[in-house]
């Protein structure tokens, strides 16, 4: 997004601010699952794509995730889970968001999630579910689309 000019102009032009500040996205890991390679891979890809990323670290409660998302006023919440406990934990996050009256945040899910659980997660409000091997380009363009459809 930012122009990287030659000839030493970068310092000046880099101060020209976009009319739209970067979107903020929270990447969260709930429950006891310690698989964080996917989440860490993702936060770097998101940063490089121009997002401001808040990572919660592993082993968080749904309450911590939701309160953090509210305090940081994020546009997107992405949850990553590889342990198999996604149905329960993601449902709890969705429930808490509803209780708090948070309705305008894009919800994404990812990890080892069997095909048969996808409709359930979608019904909870998760807009996309990504499974192992999902190309970054696909994740980024889906995210972009979600965000621009909400402008």
């Amino acid at each position: 997004m930012r122009k990287l000019d030659q000839a030493g102009q970068q310092d000046l032009t880099s101060c020209t601010v976009d009319a739209h500040p970067p979107k903020r996205i929270l990447i969260g890991k709930v429950g006891l699952d310690g698989h964080d390679r996917g989440a860490k891979f993702l936060i770097r890809a998101l940063r490089d794509a121009g997002y401001e990323v808040i990572y919660t670290g592993i082993r968080r409660t749904p309450e911590q995730i939701v309160q953090t998302a509210i305090d940081e006023d994020v546009d997107v919440i992405g949850l990553s889970l590889l342990s198999g406990a996604h149905n329960q934990l993601f449902a709890r996050v969705a429930e808490l968001l509803k209780e708090e009256g948070v309705e305008d945040v894009v919800l994404l899910a990812g990890g080892t999630i069997p095909e048969k659980d996808v409709p359930y997660l979608e019904a909870l409000g998760f807009r996309h579910v990504f499974t192992p091997g999902a190309p970054v380009s696909e994740i980024l363009s889906a995210l972009q689309q979600e965000l621009s459809s909400r402008e």
Binding site: P22, R47, E52, I54, Y55, E72
Partner: peptide
């Protein structure tokens, strides 16, 4: 990019 990793909070969760 214009992006950032806001990592301070991880220590204060």
């Amino acid at each position: 990019s214009d992006g950032a990793l806001l990592g301070d909070r991880v220590r204060m969760m």
